[in-house]
Design a protein around this nucleic acid. Structure first.
Length: 214
DNA sequence: CGAGTGATCAGCT
DNA sequence: GCTGATCACTCGA
């Protein structure tokens, strides 16, 4: 049997990434990605951001600009932006034709390349689960920069590409809730994470859970 | 808990 | 062309 090449994985993902971002986000949970320099991670937490006039928390909400242009381009490309002046936040463009949206990668488990990640993150002794737990940490762990925004995920030298074909998790393994750090659009349960996974960036209250009594 | 970091962009001139 | 408010956060007390 001939082993699949990276490009085969990318092709297999194209169909999924042509779905609305909220659906693509669901499929991305549990996906394995590999960076240009061989770091392999498994996604455990993502957020969907919608298109023009649809999702006020989305960078695409007010239309196309130089920064968010990748969101308006074809699915399966990266959108990287700087947050809080410090963090490189990594998104995978995912939308149906004629729209503009993306999935923010918020947290992952590091499966390979740990020494390089520890050196980049300047975290020689941090618990393993924290190495890429949070969007800024994940961007730094993968070594992505603003220059990678707009890059494709298909070439063998892509900054980030898929290491496995789509294999959606069982619905019961996925928890959902409001997205983190936004002021508008809180009513949408577009943050998705793997229930109980230690690398999730914070222990959240799922939408489905009973409210805690003060 | 508070400080910090810098690209971005709406609103102005 | 300029500018000040904003921002999908992290780190070190």
């Amino acid at each position: 049997m001939i082993p699949a090449r990276p490009d085969d994985f990318a092709r297999a993902w194209l169909g999924v990434l042509g779905l609305p971002a909220a659906q693509a986000a669901r499929a991305l949970l549990g996906a394995s990605l590999v960076s240009r320099d061989g770091i392999v991670v498994t996604l455990v937490e993502v957020e969907a951001y919608g298109g023009i006039g649809e999702d006020p928390a989305s960078h695409a909400y007010r239309g196309r600009t130089a920064r968010n242009a990748p969101m308006f381009g074809p699915p399966g490309h990266l959108y990287v932006y700087l947050s809080y002046g410090i963090h490189r936040c990594v998104n995978v463009v995912a939308h149906e034709p004629g729209t503009a949206s993306a999935v923010l990668l918020r947290a992952a488990r590091v499966d390979d390349g740990e020494p390089l990640v520890r050196s980049r993150r300047n975290a020689p002794a941090a618990p393993h689960r924290t190495l890429a737990s949070g969007p800024g940490r994940l961007g730094q762990a993968l070594g992505l920069t603003l220059g990678d925004s707009g890059a494709g995920m298909r070439a063998s030298d892509a900054p980030l590409r898929f290491a496995t074909p789509p294999a959606p998790l069982a619905a019961a393994a996925i928890a959902t809730g409001p997205r983190i750090g936004i002021s508008q659009g809180r009513e949408l349960p577009w943050r998705l994470w793997i229930r109980g996974h230690p690398a999730v960036s914070r222990t959240p209250t799922p939408v489905t859970a009973a409210p805690t009594v003060p």
